[in-house]
Design a protein around this nucleic acid. Structure first.
Lengths: 145, 145
DNA sequence: CTAGGTGCAAATCATTTGCCGGGGC
DNA sequence: GCCCCGGCAAATGATTTGCACCTAG
């Protein structure tokens, strides 16, 4: 099962005009805009649109799989007492974060350094999934995601 | 240069009592607590501590490299019109997010599925670095991180 | 004495939600 | 008619900040 397949339980949205414009604007740029930036872009075409609408539609578009949400699956910061390089699993149901049982490969950074014009300082890898606890009870689904 | 090495420009912090307690509590658990949860844990030992202090010290501890901040390097959501599996670079200076010039390997998920008791649905990989634009002007450093 | 620290409350910032009139099917 | 929609403003939730006092060096 895919993440998207798992995520959209109630897909019943109409493609309205503002939705369409928001989608187009997000697809038009490659700057990975914030909600606010999308709002600004869309406003040039639909001056009366509200920020709330933009948020609502970005949410709908991303759970519909038409666009991607980058960054925090949950918007609450978490802290880790272990500072060595390691990866995490994050449960899309309850938001739980655990250490992933794999070694980190620093090869990634070397490889990336060659291909990119960034000065690479680090990388972070996170697996999304359903934790054992949540697998049983589908109820709490999407509580913290 | 390491990420930490790059990040801490002004390291002049004393290890105070509340700082120490916060550090110990975060290191004690492996639950990757939120700031609020840390607050609750610390409060059992220092009933008069304030949430503001916890936030301040978590920030200091993490920029000092004593603990790790997991999740959003910036706490603003970003959106991407491309929905195929791909990775990102994020500039620790200006917060800019771009597509990383590497293929995604789904091997990762298979491997992880075997080692973990999660139902793996996806993964996200992000490289942290300094973008070409920011490399020159050190001024704007840490604006959006 | 001075700089960093702290508690507290107020402020800020991103995001979400309730209400309500409007349009599609 | 029913339901989704969008504008608007108010609410929420996480995090930050200003202020006043305090304490270590």
């Amino acid at each position: 099962m895919s993440l998207q397949g798992y995520l959209d339980s109630k897909p019943k949205y109409r493609m309205t005009n503002q939705r369409q414009v928001i989608l187009e604007e997000v697809q038009k740029v490659n700057t990975h805009p914030t909600a606010d930036e999308v709002y600004e872009m869309v406003r040039r075409r639909l001056p009366r649109i509200s920020l709330g609408t933009v948020y609502r539609n970005l949410e709908i578009l991303s759970t519909s799989g038409l666009i991607l949400k980058i960054g925090p699956p949950s918007n609450q910061m978490r802290f880790d007492g272990k500072t060595d390089n390691h990866y995490h699993t994050r449960c899309v149901s309850c938001g739980r974060v655990e250490d992933a049982p794999v070694e980190s490969f620093d090869k990634l950074e070397e490889a990336m350094q060659k291909k990119s014009n960034y000065s690479i300082l680090g990388h972070r890898l996170e697996f999304l999934g359903i934790c054992p606890v949540c697998r049983g009870k589908e109820t709490s689904f999407r509580k913290n995601v």
